[in-house]
Design a protein around this nucleic acid. Structure first.
Lengths: 348, 348
DNA sequence: TGCCATGGTGGTAGCGCTATCAGCTATAAG
DNA sequence: CTTATAGCTGATAGCGCTACCACCATGGCA
């Protein structure tokens, strides 16, 4: 009878499974991880033993033994809170599967120096790679700092990422195009557009999509009122007021994100306009805001959690000793979400 | 010249630091962790070596060797997305410090069976402890399941936690009381209250706070219109309409959370009432929603991230072999956030 | 002088897993 | 019937860290 180590937590280990299945620990490990080169019968025996003992691998031991990347940085700034939580959920799921830790760092400031400072925090804590959700994915101060430290990064949801950089995104152009067509299909011919922050390339892509759909419909793009916004609620108020102050105001407003769309609805209500009867409003992103307003917002859904997962997975692949990844760019599918903020234009 | 192992990632280890400082690895470890029983001179030498080599401990090895809890579950349901992201930020920060992983599990359903099912997911993946943010902290199906599996948990933001249970919260009663006084101070004498979901004890506590402030001011509580809500935006719409349909509608509405307050503002706008000139509205929680509406919402801020950190820390203490914790209940400070949704009542 | 506390330190032995390579079995090829 | 080839498996040796105990000085006490 062997004396159990007093340090043992009594948990099931590979050894236990191996004994149960009548194989070696190594074979169990192989089955658990992808399982190349294991005979089918053996695999089944191991799987049965795992199920019987209710085994679950110890991730600390795993990453220690495998010498894997264990700390991945995630630099976030104010993003719409709804966006961030979805993002974190996806990233955490992937991180746990990979057995690595997510290291968060807030980057509040707007100034390049503050941003670089936040980034250096990562360099000092030895993260092996960094995920950059918007809008940080576009900040050169951050990217330069990472570049200098030799830390790889993945940018998420850029509109138009630089060639060859690691990134995960949706097709902002196509999504904006589809949304515009949705408005056109409803009969709108005079659509106001609120642009996003010019320092994010997705703003330009979304606007391009809008333009493309308008022109494809044979309408005069120059007649469509366009206002500059900055993705914030407040900027949406200013832009919407400008749009509705026009002598010939649009019958629909396409805001480049949900926050600004919510602002447009707020402004319309203040003026006694009913949405969607008097004015249609659509947004982009499908954040929680879209369903905590009245009427609920027609918008474009990004698979945020999936994008975060994809980003982390890509980064881990890149970090793996052998592996430059084959496909540094991943474009995930978006989805048009039709709710109640949109109706045919009022008859005049 | 020693041949370096090909598995080594060339990172700095305790051994390197020990050699540099002229001590043993054990001593370095002691210095890094609290450092009991180390002579001051030795400690300084080690610290210097750590700084010089830019050493940072490998958390995987650490938790493997120490046999610490390494997987902590976090069961979440719908929570306001803004709430969740703040919560995750706090929890992640604490988790990284402790070197443990956060395991997320979504619990979408309302039915006890679904909730129990989600909880069993944790039991099977061998999490050592679970954090229960609202509203899950109040679900008995979940708690029974954890109890049965012998997994300790910490509930967060319950209004009135059961005696002796691990929990972190704010004083909902005091916060609601303070908010009500703020309305009274502005001159409101006829205040409508929208209650929260009755299945959460914080709803009752907030209502109690409201009542206490009203009675303390010597007003007739029975004359204050009260509607039942369920913390959702939609329930807020129904409740607000009921309140404003009253022959003698209130001059202010105190909603038990921000979502319902936003609904109240929306309903008011639809009726051509201006907020705050014609109607004051206040909320509770200070979620992102509070600043993505117009006017911005006066509300109560919970230190969400800090509460999550406190919860995780408490759980880890509980899990530590030696230690039942001394103080199973922590009450953190809330804060009244005054914005623009609130003004003195209109003169009649 | 001996003896026990006590504070400080190092050596040893793992924690649970996987990289590596050697070996071993079948099948294919010579 | 050998030899090459491939597929499958196990023994060994760590990954970087810390629990555990042995050890060595001290110094106080009998």
């Amino acid at each position: 009878m062997t004396k159990p180590s007093r340090r043992s937590r009594g948990s099931i280990t590979v050894q236990d499974v191996a004994r149960e299945a009548g194989v070696s620990a190594m074979t169990v490990s192989r089955v658990v991880n992808g399982g190349t080169n294991v005979r089918e019968a053996t695999r089944e025996a191991v799987l049965a033993a795992i199920a019987k003992l209710n085994y679950s691998p110890n991730s600390a031991a795993r990453s220690l033994a495998a010498g894997e990347a264990t700390q991945i940085g995630l630099l976030y700034s104010n993003p719409s809170a709804a966006y961030l939580s979805q993002f974190l959920i996806g990233a955490l799921a992937a991180a746990r599967r990979a057995g690595c830790h997510l290291v968060l760092e807030a980057c509040e400031g707007e100034r390049a120096e503050e941003q670089a400072e936040a980034t250096r925090g990562f360099v000092q804590t030895h993260v092996q790679g960094v995920i950059l959700p918007p809008p940080l994915s576009e900040v050169t101060a951050v990217r330069d700092e990472l570049e200098a430290a030799g830390i790889p990064w993945v940018s998420v949801a850029m509109g138009l990422p630089p060639e060859g950089s690691l990134n995960v995104r949706i097709d902002d152009f196509a999504a904006a195009c589809a949304m515009t067509k949705h408005l056109l299909d409803m009969g709108h011919r005079h659509i106001g557009f609120i642009r996003g922050n010019p320092n994010q390339t997705s703003s330009a892509e979304r606007f391009r999509g809008f333009c493309a759909a308008i022109e494809e419909a044979g309408l005069d793009l120059a007649s469509m009122p366009v206002e500059q916004g900055y993705f914030t609620f407040r900027s949406g108020i200013v832009a919407s007021e400008a749009l509705l102050d026009l002598p010939n105001p649009p019958t629909a407003i396409f805001a480049s994100n949900d926050d600004m769309a919510a602002a447009a609805v707020g402004v319309a209500h203040r003026r006694g306009l009913h949405v969607p009867q008097d004015l249609s409003v659509v947004g982009f992103d499908d954040t929680a805001l879209a369903t905590t307003m009245w009427p609920e917002l027609t918008t474009v859904r990004q698979p945020i959690a999936a994008m975060a997962e994809a980003a982390l997975t890509m980064l881990l692949d890149e970090l793996r000793p052998g592996g430059k990844i084959d496909e540094p760019e991943q474009v995930l599918a978006h989805q048009l979400i039709v709710r109640e903020s949109c109706a045919p234009p009022p008859r005049r």
